[in-house]
Each structure stands twice: as C-alpha cells, then as structure tokens.
C-alpha cells in the first residue's frame, strides 16, 4: 500500500520521498506507542482508562472513561476484560508507562489518547463529571460470519431445528467428547467430505478456540453453505462440551 502512495508522490514531483516499509507492526514491536484519534475515543468499541488522580477525574473526564490512577496501574490486570482483543485506550500523565504495562499483559490493540482531556476539549467536546463506573464492561463486536455463544448453544441444545453443529477439530480431540448430534469433519478433510454437511441448514462451526472454525467457515461459505463460526473456548469430555466466551 505505502510504496504505491510513495510512487505517486514521486510522480507528482516530490523530491524527498521515503517509505517505512516495516510499518506499524515493527513500530509497535520496538516498544513505541501508537495513538488513538479523537473519533476513536468518541465512537470506538474501546476500554477508555483515565490514569489521573481520582480528584482530577472527578473534576471532569472524557465520557465513558474508567478511573484507574497511575499508582494503582497494577489493578488493570484484574479489571480489564478477559479478552486480549479488547482495545485499551489510555490517557493522562504516565500514559507511556501504563501503555507498556498493558501491552505486557497481552492486550493487542492498546493505544494512547495523546493530550488527554485537553485534546478532547480542544476538539470541541464536553467533559463529564459522572461518577466512575464501578466495573469495566466491554463486549466484543462479532466479526462477519460469527455466531454468538447464546445462538450457538441454542443449536447445540437442540432448540433450533434449522441449525446443525459442525465440529472441525481433529479425530483425537473429538474422541474426548462432542456436542450431541454434532457432525464431525476435521478441518483437513473438509474438502473431501463436504457432502456430509447439510446445505439446507445453518451450519454452526466450532473448534477449540475459533481459529479453525473461521478457516472452515470461509471454505464452506465459498462452497455456498449457510455457515457461521464460533469464537469461544470449547472444552469437551465424555459428558459433552462446554463453551466459554473468549
């Protein structure tokens, strides 16, 4: 992408054109932070954290922000959502330090809102004086083709006759236990055994986390199936399987 833009700049007569080929992943990997835009802080499905002392938070904070003063930073380990996919946006003095801490915890899309409340007000937004929410709540927005745990369970429990469960785990994994009435086709045999999967039903695909289910979903979609996939931890034994949201 960027080399193409750089090429256009050269053609337009710009004389000093450089490309940072390694891009954002290398920037993040070097431990440097990335910054979120005001739009993202306003509308994004994020966990916004105000790192300032409680007294400053009370005087006015960005709407939706949780209050976790920098000195209590370690609390974030317990307070942040279990899913490492939750985008955490930090602001206030010490945001750099907190960024490193949160990254280390494993949150993949952590960022800083540079300038904090000042930047927020400067872009024409109001501060809030609402009391701090007691708990951090955050819900992942489902990806394309993803099914909710609730909808999946309905099919697994036999309460949705229009649906069928497809288990794409390996033979060894399936031998430990499966959902009742699930069809089992290991991901690597999917191509060869597509005729075993009903075309007239909603096919709910699962594996043990969601990675293989997503791959199978793309495969079945391309072949014209009405398929969905589950992103959740699935654990099975002889009594059946249990799902836990990521």
């Amino acid at each position: 992408m960027s080399p193409e833009s750089a090429g256009l700049a050269v053609k337009a007569g710009y004389t000093n054109v450089k490309v940072y080929l390694k891009g954002v992943p290398a920037w993040k990997k070097s431990g440097r932070n990335v910054v979120a835009s005001t739009k993202h802080v306003k509308d994004g499905n994020i966990v916004l954290v105000d790192l300032r002392p409680t007294s400053e938070y009370k005087q006015g904070h960005i709407p939706r922000a949780y209050s976790v003063p920098l000195e209590d930073m370690e609390d974030l380990e317990d307070d942040l959502p279990a899913s490492m996919a939750a985008p955490v946006v930090l602001y206030g003095t010490g945001d750099d330090k907190a960024y490193k801490f949160v990254k280390k915890l494993g949150y993949k899309t952590t960022s800083i809102y540079q300038g904090g409340v000042d930047a927020w007000v400067a872009s024409g937004n109001q501060l809030s004086t609402d009391a701090a929410p007691e708990e951090i709540t955050w819900k992942r927005i489902l990806g394309k083709g993803e099914v909710t745990v609730a909808a999946f369970n309905k099919v697994a429990d036999g309460e949705a006759p229009g649906g069928v469960i497809l288990d794409v785990r390996t033979k060894d994994e399936a031998a430990e236990g499966m959902f009742d009435n699930a069809i089992h086709v290991p991901l690597d045999e999917l191509q060869a055994k597509m005729n075993e999967i009903p075309k007239d039903k909603e096919v709910m695909i699962h594996c043990s986390t969601g990675a293989r289910a997503e791959m199978a979903y793309k495969e079945l979609k391309a072949a014209g199936f009405n398929a969905y996939y589950l992103v959740a931890d699935v654990e099975c034994d002889e009594d059946g399987c249990e799902t836990a949201e990521e």
Binding site: A6, A12, Y14, Y20, V24, A26, W27
Partner: peptide
Amino acid sequence: ALAVLPKDKNIQLVFYCGGP
C-alpha cells in the same frame, strides 16, 4: 498527490502501512 500532500515539494515525506 498534489491535492492531499503539502505544497512544499521538498518537504520530507514518509509513507508507511501495515507492513509485515
């Protein structure tokens, strides 16, 4: 390019994207 980049054609431009 002319519509979205600065007027000064000698300014140092650095482009990047998602990289590997």
